[in-house]
């Protein structure tokens, strides 16, 4: 009896195959984008022992390195590099400003050409930054972090002050979160790198 009354084909359900593939590809793409974004956001600061990526800092008017208005990290290879992130609105930055300047002057006199300090002004306005630099008589090269590109390369959740010390081979050897409390504290980190 069933042979005489064959079952009609079931009505086609679901979207065409190409639509399903397209939707799943779009969802997959979205997941990958979200995943990459999350991974990027959670990237830790550059680890001690890792090579520091190159960057170029445009200096404030009145500051220069070897007569130029900008400085690249690769230009500093062979020297110990002290990179200090600061801002004029940051009170803890003021606590260490004089010590950093004193340490810079100490090494400029005692080990000329072997240690360089760089100040990077983070999320600041230029008039206030200039007042800050003048107030603490900061003489080492300083410049603004345009577009926060340099700070983002070091630490995606940057807070100031933060100081990164890089050895002569471009390897990060010390990360200081928060202010230095004395010149001696700075020297204790830099002197061994100079073989002292």
């Amino acid at each position: 009896m069933n042979e005489n009354n064959p079952t009609p084909p079931a009505p086609r359900r679901g979207a065409p195959l190409w639509v399903q593939i397209l939707v799943f590809a779009a969802l997959l793409g979205l997941l990958v984008l979200v995943g990459l974004g999350l991974a990027r956001a959670q990237q830790p600061i550059i680890a001690v022992g890792a090579a520091v990526p190159d960057f170029t800092l445009t200096l404030f008017d009145g500051y220069a390195y070897n007569g130029a208005g900008e400085v690249s990290l690769t230009d500093l290879r062979g020297q110990v590099v002290v990179i200090n992130f600061w801002a004029s609105w940051c009170k803890p930055c003021e606590e260490e400003a004089a010590d950093l300047e004193a340490a810079w002057r100490h090494y400029a006199a005692q080990a000329p050409g072997r240690v360089i300090f760089l100040g990077i002004d983070y999320v600041d306005t230029e008039p206030q930054a200039r007042s800050y630099l003048a107030k603490f008589e900061i003489s080492f090269p300083n410049g603004p972090d345009m577009g926060t590109r340099i700070s983002q390369a070091f630490n995606r959740t940057m807070g100031v002050p933060e100081t990164y010390i890089i050895d002569q081979n471009g390897i990060l050897v010390h990360v200081q979160i928060g202010p230095f409390l004395s010149v001696a504290e700075i020297q204790r980190i830099i002197d061994p790198l100079l073989g002292r």
Binding site: S88, W89, V123, T125, P127
Partner: peptide, 10 residues
């Protein structure tokens, strides 16, 4: 914050 006040002044 102080940073934001500076931005508004700017």
């Amino acid at each position: 914050t102080e940073a934001c006040r500076q931005w508004r002044d700017l």
